[in-house]
Design a protein around this nucleic acid. Sequence first.
DNA 1: CATGAATGAGGCTTCATTCAT
DNA 2: AATGAATGAAGCCTCATTCAT
Lengths: 238, 238, 238, 238
Amino acid sequence: MTKRFGQPIPGAMYPTGNQRETMTQHMTDHANHSAAPVNLCAKRVQILKAAGEVFLGSGYAGASMSQIAQKAGVSKGALYNHFDSKDDLFTAFFEEMSRTKLSVLKALVHDEKLDTRTALLHMARTTIQLMLDATTIGLYRVILVDAPRFPNLADTFWHHGFGCAIHNLASWLTRKTAEGKLNVDDAEFAAEQFLILCQTRIVQRRRMSLPVDCDSSHIEHVARLTAESFLRIYAPTP
Amino acid sequence: MTKRFGQPIPGAMYPTGNQRETMTQHMTDHANHSAAPVNLCAKRVQILKAAGEVFLGSGYAGASMSQIAQKAGVSKGALYNHFDSKDDLFTAFFEEMSRTKLSVLKALVHDEKLDTRTALLHMARTTIQLMLDATTIGLYRVILVDAPRFPNLADTFWHHGFGCAIHNLASWLTRKTAEGKLNVDDAEFAAEQFLILCQTRIVQRRRMSLPVDCDSSHIEHVARLTAESFLRIYAPTP
Amino acid sequence: MTKRFGQPIPGAMYPTGNQRETMTQHMTDHANHSAAPVNLCAKRVQILKAAGEVFLGSGYAGASMSQIAQKAGVSKGALYNHFDSKDDLFTAFFEEMSRTKLSVLKALVHDEKLDTRTALLHMARTTIQLMLDATTIGLYRVILVDAPRFPNLADTFWHHGFGCAIHNLASWLTRKTAEGKLNVDDAEFAAEQFLILCQTRIVQRRRMSLPVDCDSSHIEHVARLTAESFLRIYAPTP
Amino acid sequence: MTKRFGQPIPGAMYPTGNQRETMTQHMTDHANHSAAPVNLCAKRVQILKAAGEVFLGSGYAGASMSQIAQKAGVSKGALYNHFDSKDDLFTAFFEEMSRTKLSVLKALVHDEKLDTRTALLHMARTTIQLMLDATTIGLYRVILVDAPRFPNLADTFWHHGFGCAIHNLASWLTRKTAEGKLNVDDAEFAAEQFLILCQTRIVQRRRMSLPVDCDSSHIEHVARLTAESFLRIYAPTP
DNA sequence: CATGAATGAGGCTTCATTCAT
DNA sequence: AATGAATGAAGCCTCATTCAT
């Protein structure tokens, strides 16, 4: 059923089916013959946005095409003019979301001239904040529950999100180790540890819909403890 | 509608209605006149088992009563002789699962005469293994996706699982700190960090249905790194 | 399905099936071998009572055997020990109700030494009160809706209720005409007119669940107008 | 849940949702771009017609959506494109029926130049005929049995039917009294008496599904007796 | 291309009835 | 006799999808 997924080749054309580009970019690269494509894009974006709200909240099984159509302000039929099926829409939504919402993770590592401790604190704070975002939590939820039936889901999420962040962070850790600021052996593992440690206390509870204090002061506290802990693990031996 | 949840009163009897004892215990405490209760329990257990398989795999919305009935080998109507509704069955399944499957976490801390490093390794190994279990992963999945609609879910899970483990582990850490073997300030936080660190690499990927090597040698490796890291954070300052 | 109905022969025996005597009489005409029949009767009465409450309120289609069993405080199976089917129980309930609750109508005409006007007023009052009774209204409701599917229902109701009252009243009217107190030609028609006139204002509205003042003073008012009207129709020509 | 009822605003448009005009009028007031509404209306009418047949015969509880769909020649799901629920369909059916079928009652009083006796006979005949109509009997049945659960039912019926007729007739009676042709004190009460008297013998039996002669000659006979009786009650005192 | 009515499969639940205990 | 679990048909309703307009 699921048709397109897995290798989102940014420039490729999809001659069969309704698929179009992911459309947040180059909305204007066709000053050609008609404004229709713009509207198309607009409607597609509109639908994807609505699909996002619904799928993130309810998962694949809990969402209904009617709901999405209604929230998007279009007819049910219109959904099928832009997407071949619920599966297809789900897949498109997920890819779009992963690409746009997790971009923060890709840019987690700013190579500014911050000292190591400050940089770690900064990254911890940013990570926690991202992971508390409703969209991120929704995406995580969707992956956990729907990945068994949509095998490429997790790949996409990993590719655009966690995996990417781990990779970038690992590079940074390797660099810091080379600089003698840290002492990291398995950089990929350490990077993952860092990201996972960020979930202590706040993120973990929030994901489970448990009541939790999300004040920025609390976030700051946890970020600090996390950065500190990480430093203790990987501080260079004197 | 959903009747039973929240305060499982272990010794109470439910003479009227569908609710019965949680039924893993005292299947034999009726040397009286009839074997019927055994069958009743048997069928209830049978249904709960099937419900478990289905709910764990698909969440509440993705599961269907027909599926469950079929997997349990009973008629659809029979489900309603034992549970008032899908909600009720879901709730009962979840409570049962939390109680029985997470008991390992409660017993995570054995107060044996192991040295600290070995004990941590041991606990890391156990935790990883538990968290890789299909049931545990399913439960986690269910909580993430269905807790928003079933508020007690997360409480139950926390109460029987994570929360309990954190609490026990925190006590142990406090004790070790008193003994000078560790140097833990915020024991609850540290305990949670330990459990979260155990999810690095293997558990996290498995949860997302990503391919991952689950060999015991790999588990051992991660457990060792985890214990080591934890020790580095909280080793007593020399 | 419906087995027995139509000619309730009071003394007959029903050798096949579960049917027993209507049981409000001669509860004691068997000082014979066992007290079981008494219990049977008790349970049967209990069931019929519950069936009455439910059927009167909801009609045949709206009632459920479970409801009845619950209200009767017996098991669902027990219903089928006493009655062959829902149809059978319905039929038995209806006959019983008609017989017992409408007996007032049979005794509508007391041949006391009241003058005609007072007697009519008396009968109007009694009729209105009976017709306002929840049971009577329920019976009427049941006939209207279920008679098409249970052809003997209306016969029974007519036989025990309206028809009987009309008959008795017609005799009385004939007698009064003979005495020169009234001038009734078609006595059956006149009797029916009287009973129907009693439904003006209060009974008619109550039947339709419309709000209506049922004070005894209001009843008295309507009864008086009704008797007066009847007298004007059938007063002997001077 | 039930959305439309109570105040049928004749000219309102319901652009969103299932609700549409009651649709017996202006099937042609859209010389616009498409013939679809005609079909829509047609189907809605088709469904309402089928619903009428079923509900009138069986009441709310005894009717099934499958039956209605089948009788309407549409799929079960199609019902829900036009009505939100069984309740909604029931409510719409009842309102429509009350409005269209009982209009005869509203026009009961023609202010022709008939003498009083003839006018009464005329009205009695018309009333009896209307009340014998299968639809009227069905509506009455539905009210009695379902009004307890649908409070607006009886109001609607009264508003469109009985109540209206009583009101018009009462005005007529008052007029006749002013003209010295009748001597009516409580005109509303008298009007109700007239309508109720019309139910003697034929209507009452028919309602209960009892066998009864409905020949026009019999109707004429009862109408004559009824008019005569009414005249005797309210003839002006000489 | 947009619409939304139509469809039929399938969802959850209730029901009358049966039957082993 | 009494119980209540089991059954499978049927009830109401929703859903993804199609298609005429």
